[in-house]
Amino acid sequence: MDKPVTELNKTASKAPSIRKKKKLVLVGTPNVGKSVIFNLLTGTYVVVSNYPGTTVEVARGTGKIGQEVYEVIDTPGMYSLFPITEEERVTRTLLLTEKPDIVIHVVDAKNLERMLPLTLQLLEAGLPVILAVNMMDEAEVLGRTIDLDALAKALNIPVVGTAAAQNRGIDQLKRMVSDFVRKHVA
């Protein structure tokens, strides 16, 4: 992980304006696919599984989204901003101390009603949130349709539907991240 940083510093010093690497944090309930998205964004591998709570440690990687290089941070799952377990505390402390430039809240489409309260909490905390509604394919199988545009309008934040395990929606997610960051820097 050290190498990309030094490489980035080199290019940064060459560039006319010195750009700091932007921080992108993935948060969400256990077992919603944060680690899959992390792998897709960074190209590095962290262990992914169908068992809640397998990400024990914070994983950090770098990934290029649009023209920008990001530090991507994968966090242990959390249910709410009120931590129950040690791992959840880790995630909240990270959010409290790291000043992320963008927070992607990954939720399970099948259980949107249960997970959206965390989105609302993140917004209340004043964090820059994008909502990634993951596992759209499984929700479809269950007979659920979600009007993502209406949801984006209601929450007034970017919302994207993904099926990360099938690599669906990831390009759109990346585009949204770029747009979001551009808007907020300007």
């Binding site: 949107l112 009603e113 959206l116 309260p117 007979g143 659920r144 979600i146 209601a154």
Partner: peptide
């Protein structure tokens, strides 16, 4: 908070029962 969530989602989610 959950009640607000349900209000927001009432116009967003449509469920039809399908059983695999």
């Amino acid at each position: 908070c959950r009640q607000r969530t349900d209000q927001i989602l009432s116009g967003v989610i449509t469920d039809s029962k399908k059983e695999t």
